[in-house]
């Protein structure tokens, strides 16, 4: 479980996050939703320690991250896997080397063991034949898969995805969403996903947190989201004609 306590973040004068509280559970897909610029990425980067929160704390299974010593932080980080918005694959390395990188960096395994594990991870994300290609040679959806394979290479307990569907077509989006959900249940990870995609919310949102202008406005599940009285949330959810139609026809989940 990851708990966020009164987390605030400012860049100079500009306060981006205001007193966020949240708890993310094991084996569940926890979605942070909100418009572009609402602070989702900043929140995620504060949680994983890429940004220093101005105020507040993050607890990883009870262990405080902001108070942790250098070595404790390192240990927690080894339990974290993150998939960045653009994939953030190392472009000087092949697909296979990208996935093998954390293994070679942090395990004492031999080269062949490492490559076996990389191969396994790539098969898990349904990429059996791209091993020798470079990131510039593969499609956006494949990049996301490689990034996922790299994130799960060290068997993380905590998985973070920043906009896993951005730039993907709807079908590929659904495949990626399902993959994330399967991995979450299979490995019982605490999975946190930033998204502004209502399809993902409906597909895989176990627990949903709505962020607006750096404030947490609402949390609940995907049934509750239809009935929420929060104006900002309904504006966000029913921004598309499709969603409004679904509502007016009393579409049942």
């Amino acid at each position: 479980m990851i708990e966020i306590k009164h987390l605030s973040k400012s860049f100079g004068e500009n306060q981006v996050l205001h007193q966020i509280d949240a708890a993310f559970e094991e084996g569940k897909t926890n979605l942070i939703i909100g418009q572009s610029g609402s602070g989702k990425t900043v929140l995620m980067k504060c949680v994983v320690g890429l940004f220093e929160p101005t105020e507040g704390d993050v607890l990883y299974s009870g262990r405080s991250f902001t108070q942790a010593s250098f070595n404790e932080k390192r240990n927690i980080r080894k339990e974290i896997g993150m998939v960045f918005q653009g994939g953030a694959l190392f472009d000087s390395m092949t697909v296979e080397e990208n996935v093998a990188f954390p293994l070679r960096m942090f395990t004492k395994e031999s080269r062949s063991e490492v490559m076996d594990r990389a191969d396994l991870c790539l098969k898990r994300v349904n990429l059996p034949k791209a091993h020798k290609l470079f990131p510039s040679e593969i499609s956006g959806g494949m990049k996301k898969r490689v990034a996922i394979a790299r994130a799960i290479a060290l068997n993380p307990k905590y998985l973070f995805f920043d906009e896993p569907n951005s730039g993907l077509d709807p079908r590929t989006s659904i495949l990626i969403d399902n993959l994330i959900q399967e991995i979450t249940q299979e490995y019982q990870t605490v999975t946190v996903i930033n998204t502004h995609d209502m399809n993902s919310v409906m597909e895989i949102g176990d627990k949903i947190f709505y962020i607006h202008k750096g404030h947490k406005h609402w949390q609940g599940d995907r049934v509750g989201i239809w009935e929420s009285p929060n104006k900002e949330l309904t504006d966000f959810v029913f921004a598309t004609r499709l969603m409004r139609d679904i509502r007016s026809k009393n579409f049942k989940l």
Binding site: G49, L50, A88, F106
Partner: peptide
């Protein structure tokens, strides 16, 4: 590497 978050990816791995 910075703007495409590759540096963040290194840091998150503890590198």
């Amino acid at each position: 590497m910075r703007v495409s978050e590759q540096i963040d990816a290194l840091e998150i791995m503890g590198v």
